[in-house]
Design a protein around this nucleic acid. Structure first.
Lengths: 118, 118
DNA sequence: CGGCATCCAATAAGATACTG
DNA sequence: CAGTATCTTATTGGATGCCG
């Protein structure tokens, strides 16, 4: 891999510039809850209220916000049922599923790291 | 307080609690420059000034700060030469090297993601 | 039920200047 | 050369309340 000298291949994503794919990945899943959301959604489609239960220590607002961004970035699919009371289901898109291997590794690395550093 | 099933294995790192290894990993490499620093250091030992050149768009302060945290977390080794002018070399520890595969995947996922989402 | 708007608190990051 | 100190700004996260 070539140690690219700075400005050569700058990438633009969401109106910001990134010099490396790593930073893009972090921009997508680096939010406080995003990685965990993707992790949980890997189990299958969930309603908003399901997610709320899983993430009982966050607020509706935060969950909504993070889900919106994940949706905008195309990792999560949001299906709204036109009914009262509302029903909204979230699921992973192809892109959302494609990051799962990385999350898996991050999960085990984190645990291992913690074990060794104590 | 409802004991959700997940409360069982809460992990503590740097006085914060994490429910998942993913979040620990993000706590370690999620800083704005940390992942990139680790990525560059994988090329070999570097002096502070080398890193400054690589990260010409950040400040000394930020670089120092991020390096300090990486050092505290045991990912980076800092060797100070007792001389004037000062000479400080940074290199990856075993732990720092162990995260490389993840960074690699993050790098290629990020690029791929960008390609597909445009 | 699911979500938005507003306001506020906590961090993270950056500018700038000084130092051994 | 490789920092530190201080101050300011930007970005995130959170509390709370209203709405269709």
């Amino acid at each position: 891999m070539q140690a690219n000298q700075s400005v050569a291949d700058v990438m633009t994503f969401r109106e910001r510039e990134y010099k490396c794919g790593i930073d893009i990945t972090l921009a997508v899943v680096g939010g406080k809850w995003k990685a965990s959301i993707l992790w949980h959604l890997a189990q299958g489609t969930m309603r908003f209220s399901d997610l709320q239960r899983q993430f009982s220590d966050t607020t509706r607002k935060m969950l909504t916000q993070q889900l919106r961004e994940l949706e905008e970035d195309g990792l999560v699919y949001r299906k709204v049922y036109a009914q009262v009371p509302p029903k909204v289901e979230y699921s992973l898109t192809e892109s959302g599923r494609s990051i799962h291997p990385i999350l898996e590794q991050m999960c085990s690395w984190g645990k291992q790291f913690l074990k060794e550093s104590s």
